[in-house]
Each structure stands twice: as C-alpha cells, then as structure tokens.
C-alpha cells in the first residue's frame, strides 16, 4: 500500500517527537497490563528495561544452571518471560538501518570496562528501587507514593551527576 507522501512525512515527524512517543508508550504499557494480567503480577509492569532484563536473564540462568534467581510471577507463569528487551534491540536496529544511522562506534578497553561496571551498578540500584526510570514512570501513573519518592531520588542523582560531569569538564579545560 502506498500512503500519501504527506501522511508518511507526518508519521515520521511524530515518531521523532518524544512527547508523542512518551504518551503512546505509556498508554500501550497500560494496555499490555490489561491484556496480560491474567498471567500474573506485578501491576504497572508493562514496560521496564531493568525488570524485563532481569526476567529474561534470570529465567535463562535458572533454566541452564538450575538456580532459582528472582523472576517476576508473570514471567515465571508464562511459557517464556517478557521479551521486551529483545524487541527493543530489534526495533532500534531496524530504525537505525532503515534510516542509515547504523555505524559501529568503538571505544577504548578502559571505556568498555567502565561501561560494563556502570551497567552492573545501574542494575543493582534499579532493582533496589524496583525498576528503571520507565517502570518508575508507570508506577507514578499508578499512584504509587514510593515511586514518586524514587523519582525524586533519580532527579537528585541526575543533578549530582550533572554537577560531577560539569566539574570534570571544567577541570580538564
């Protein structure tokens, strides 16, 4: 089907507009809970990068190594856990390829070590608070007071991190 050029352009413009993307993802994440809730809890769990990574990784480790690492009930009850993360990687790869924005960017070995360590720490902190900034957003929308406090913590951390980054840049100059 060939769409009108204008229509395609506006759909492309919308996809590049964070406010549209945010609203759509929020609405669809709520719909995902509506669709899948019979498989189990928790609530406000339709989209989360940290928790869905944990469900996928821990399910795989449990299956391979016979361990019993934490997996959310809904991912445990289902035939396979949430595959959100696999989807995000595929969707973003498709978007980057289609629009000619895929380009291998290498870093130094030291930078790889920092990023890997950062990923480990990020995950630990995120799971302490029961989710990454995305699930926190869903939980705030679900009127969870602790999530509002967690979001305030995230904002405080961002302010601190920004000050650290600015101080490092100024010292380097």
């Amino acid at each position: 089907m060939n769409k009108e050029p204008e229509e395609r352009t506006s759909a492309r413009a919308l996809a590049k507009t964070p406010v549209f993307v945010g609203a759509l993802v929020g609405i669809l994440a709520a719909a995902v809970q509506g669709l899948l809730a019979s498989a189990g809890g928790p609530e406000a769990y339709g989209f989360c990068v940290a928790c869905h990574t944990r469900d996928l990784v821990n399910s795989a480790v449990n299956a391979l190594a016979g361990t019993s690492l934490t997996v959310a009930p809904i991912s445990k009850n289902a035939v396979l856990p949430f595959l959100t993360i696999v989807g995000v990687l595929i969707g973003a790869l498709a978007a980057a390829r289609v629009n000619g924005e895929f380009r291998v960017k290498k870093g130094s070995l030291t930078s790889y070590a920092w990023y890997a360590a950062g990923g480990v720490l990020f995950m630990v902190f995120a799971l302490l608070m029961g989710g990454c900034p995305y699930r926190v957003a869903l939980r705030v929308g679900y009127i969870d007071i602790v999530a509002v406090i967690g979001l305030a913590g995230i904002v405080a951390g961002i302010i601190a991190g920004t000050k650290i980054a600015v101080a490092c840049v100024e010292r380097g100059e």
């Binding site: 302490l128 995230i154 601190a160």
Partner: peptide, 16 residues
Amino acid sequence: LAVIGGIGVGIIGVLL
C-alpha cells in the same frame, strides 16, 4: 531503598 536506588540510577545514568 527508593531514595538510594534513585540517586544511584540518576548519577550513573548521567555519567554514562
């Protein structure tokens, strides 16, 4: 935990 986790998530996210 929400405060500790949030601050950690915010700092690491910004720096990386």
